[in-house]
Amino acid sequence: MSTTHSARLMDGTALARRITERTTARAAAVTRRRGAAPCLATVLVGDDPASVTYVRMKRARCESVGITSRHVPLPAATTTAELVATITALSEDPGVDGILLQHPAGPHIDERAAFEAIDPAKDVDGVTMRSFAAMSFGLPGFVSCTPGGIMRLLEEYEVDLAGRHAVVVGRSAILGRPAGMLLLGRDATVTYCHSRTADVGTLVREADVVVAAVGRPRFVRGEDVKPGAVVIDAGYNAGNVGDVDFETARTRASLITPVPGGVGPMTIAVLLEQTVEAAERSLPA
């Protein structure tokens, strides 16, 4: 009698909770030592409903772990120069430990210029070129939060990446590209797929580890998942649907992240952890 295989779920919610508990204790220690809590400044341009919700959620999580949240709302008509000036002021403010610019900032904004105005010592979201370079070379710095959360999940579930073929579907500056560099840093052989890649399914079928970060619902077909592969779904689309056809993929994968409850909670956990780490670095020796 045959039984239907079902992959083991990678529980990002539980791991994020443990990381956040440690972060809460570290934040309290910072507050005791310097008399002020760690502070994360969130910058939001305009009033896009999804962005407003994300920022509200992040601020609430900050407060729950003992991090002060300073919110800087800017009108939708804000120019790149005005946004850069706002971020530069926050970078120079000794009362701010970390800076988060909510993405996207708007089609009229040069986001790269805005990101580069963030002091790398306060780049707790890991979005500057300097952070990307440090990440790529394995040097001290802050990682992009979602890729960093993915790596923590892989470590938690003891996925040995050395010599494994990892296929990253997506090449965004704050998700796909840094995820690939972090995987490379763990000795995986990395292939990037993107909008110009011919026959993505063929490459996915060769992957020991799949990271789906393309922003298209069920883009990675379950039947293309190699039996026993590890599947990380970093997508989130309307209706709680990821970038992977979950129901089919779970019958073939060995490990898979659910949506929601997989990568998402890890992203915020890493953001909070890195904010406290930035505050710790500011403490006197």
Rank of each mutant, 00 (worst) to 15 (best):
E247D: 15
F246L: 14
V244P: 01
N237Y: 02
L272A: 05
F246S: 08
L271E: 02
V230H: 03
P260K: 11
Y236K: 02
A269S: 08
T267N: 03
T248V: 15
H194Y: 08
P217A: 15
V276P: 10
I268L: 14
C193D: 06
F246E: 00
A213Q: 02
V190R: 09
V276G: 12
V225W: 05
N237I: 02
G239C: 07
V211Y: 07
Y192S: 01
Y192Q: 02
D243T: 10
G262I: 03
V220A: 06
L271G: 01
T251L: 08
V211Q: 03
T191V: 00
A253I: 08
V244S: 01
E247S: 13
T257Q: 11
P258I: 10
D208A: 07
I256H: 10
E223D: 15
D208G: 09
T197E: 00
R216A: 14
A188E: 03
V231Q: 04
Y236W: 13
R186D: 03
V241T: 15
T257P: 06
L203R: 15
G215K: 02
T197I: 09
G262P: 07
R205E: 15
D208R: 00
I268R: 00
V259C: 08
A212Q: 08
L271F: 06
G242V: 10
A269Y: 12
T275I: 09
A238F: 08
R252P: 02
A229R: 07
G222Q: 09
R218T: 13
S254F: 05
G261I: 11
E273H: 14
V230N: 02
V214K: 12
E223L: 04
A269E: 09
C193Q: 04
V209E: 05
P227K: 11
L272R: 02
S195C: 01
A212F: 08
A269N: 04
A238T: 13
G239P: 05
I256F: 06
Y192A: 00
G215Y: 01
D208W: 01
G215M: 01
D245L: 05
F219N: 00
P258A: 10
Y236A: 11
A269Q: 07
T267P: 13
R218M: 09
R196W: 05
T251E: 15
R218C: 10
G261D: 12
G264V: 02
R221T: 13
A229S: 04
A213N: 04
F246N: 06
V241R: 14
P258Y: 09
P260C: 08
E206N: 13
V200H: 09
V241H: 11
V220P: 06
G261Q: 12
M266G: 06
I256Q: 08
P265H: 12
L272W: 03
H194R: 03
H194V: 07
Y192C: 01
P258V: 08
T191W: 06
V276M: 02
